[in-house]
């Protein structure tokens, strides 16, 4: 009985490390090659369009609404202390430090990550990946690498967009609607926001999330059981694992960046 339990734990542990190893090898093989610009540029462009441009709308709309909600909630609390002029830094700092990178990564995992997994999984299930290998085309470099780079490049841009639109949303609610002084809104914000501490750290966060989310998404697709059920499982796992990884890593990064 006890031995069975121990064996179960051991099996799961081995499975976990084997999966991590396969994921690492896949990413290494996909990226560790001199890129052929002429061949890979059109592929990257296509993926940037699918991963980045098509996530544009959801990022802009959610950024606007989150900024507006922040403005409204922040105002109702701050006005009780007569500190409604601090609305600007409250909105800007919460967006730049936390909400921008994190919510973008979560939306990105749901919008683009699940699509990547499903696409690659279906390629595997319909044996497109093996046929590529038969034709001496490396599927890692043709399919995986451009998708990874597209995710890596799009996410920080999307996070910047999210923060900028969100701050504008907070401005709309706070200044245009609720009547916070616009000079104080921007002036106090500028005094509180630091280019290195806030914007650069937010950028680093979104880069880390970009690697994690895209990596999980493409690996789940590449590693899925090639059946329709396997693909659906892999897609679910992508969203769940990527979201959990983002939230967990966010705490670690925040503790490292703003901890002391």
């Amino acid at each position: 009985m006890i031995l069975d339990g121990l064996a179960g734990i051991g099996r799961q542990g081995l499975n976990f490390f084997a999966t991590m190893g396969r994921a690492g090898i896949m990413l290494f093989n996909a990226l560790w090659a001199l890129p052929n610009i002429k061949k890979s540029w059109p592929l990257l462009l296509r993926q940037l369009y699918v991963v980045g441009v098509q996530s544009f709308a959801i990022i802009v709309v959610s950024g606007l609404f989150i900024g507006m909600v922040l403005g409204l909630q922040g105002y109702t609390i701050l006005v009780g202390y007569g500190a409604e002029n601090s609305l600007g830094p409250m909105v800007a700092l919460s967006l730049l430090r936390e909400l921008g990178p994190v919510v973008t990564a979560l939306l990105f995992a749901g919008r683009a990550g699940s699509a990547l997994t499903a696409e690659i999984g279906l390629m595997k299930a319909t044996e497109q990946l093996s046929s590529m290998e038969l034709m001496a085309v490396d599927p890692l470099r043709r399919v995986i690498a451009p998708r990874f780079w597209a995710g890596f490049l799009s996410m920080p841009l999307l996070a910047f967009l999210f923060s900028a639109i969100g701050i504008w949303g907070g401005y709309l609610v706070g200044v245009e609607w609720l009547g916070v002084d616009q000079g104080n809104f921007w002036g106090v914000m500028q005094a509180a926001v630091d280019l290195n501490r806030d914007i650069l750290n937010g950028f680093i966060k979104s880069l880390v999330f970009a690697v994690v989310v895209t990596w999980i998404a493409i690996f789940r697709g590449y590693d899925c059981v090639p059946t329709s059920e396997g693909i659906s499982q892999a897609t679910t796992q992508t969203v769940v694992h990527a979201s959990l990884a983002v939230l967990g890593l966010d705490f670690v990064l925040t503790a490292l960046m703003f901890g002391e």
């Binding site: 544009f56 800007a92 730049l96 920080p156 841009l157 999307l158 910047f160 967009l161 923060s163 900028a164 639109i165 701050i167 921007w186 914000m189 500028q190 926001v193 630091d194 280019l195 806030d198 914007i199």
Partner: peptide
């Protein structure tokens, strides 16, 4: 659009 957002953040929000 991404770079305009970055520029907005760097110029209008931070400085």
């Amino acid at each position: 659009a991404g770079f305009i957002a970055l520029l907005f953040l760097a110029l209008q929000v931070a400085s």
